[in-house]
Amino acid sequence: MDSEKEKAIHEHESHSHEYGVYILVFFGLLALTAITVSIAGLNLGSLTLTVALVIATIKTCLVANYFMHVKFDSPIFKVFIAVCIVIFATMIGLTFFDLIFR
């Protein structure tokens, strides 16, 4: 327990990064934006939505892990985020059981 707390106190020192990493991530995000816009121009039919959502999810992972430092935070934050996502997915899933079979 205590060592965990201790780690937490020093946490800030542990994830001080250089500008470069973040600028790289930024360019990655720009590239993904370009991809999503250009793909939307193609006619992919029912795949359009899936592709758009997959790209948005990748972008979100980048933002969360690097800009929001989740990658460098203690595991408890990842657990929290997982709980939040699972609950939200459950809400959408159960609502769609109604819509699809209505």
């Binding site: 939505l49 979100t60 933002v63 969360a64 800009f67 929001m68």
Partner: peptide
């Protein structure tokens, strides 16, 4: 601020990129 960004990351394709 990043969260607001993330929400926009989803709003953008869902509203602007439906063709």
């Amino acid at each position: 601020w990043h969260l607001v960004d993330v929400i926009w990351i989803f709003l953008f394709p869902l509203f602007y990129l439906i063709h």
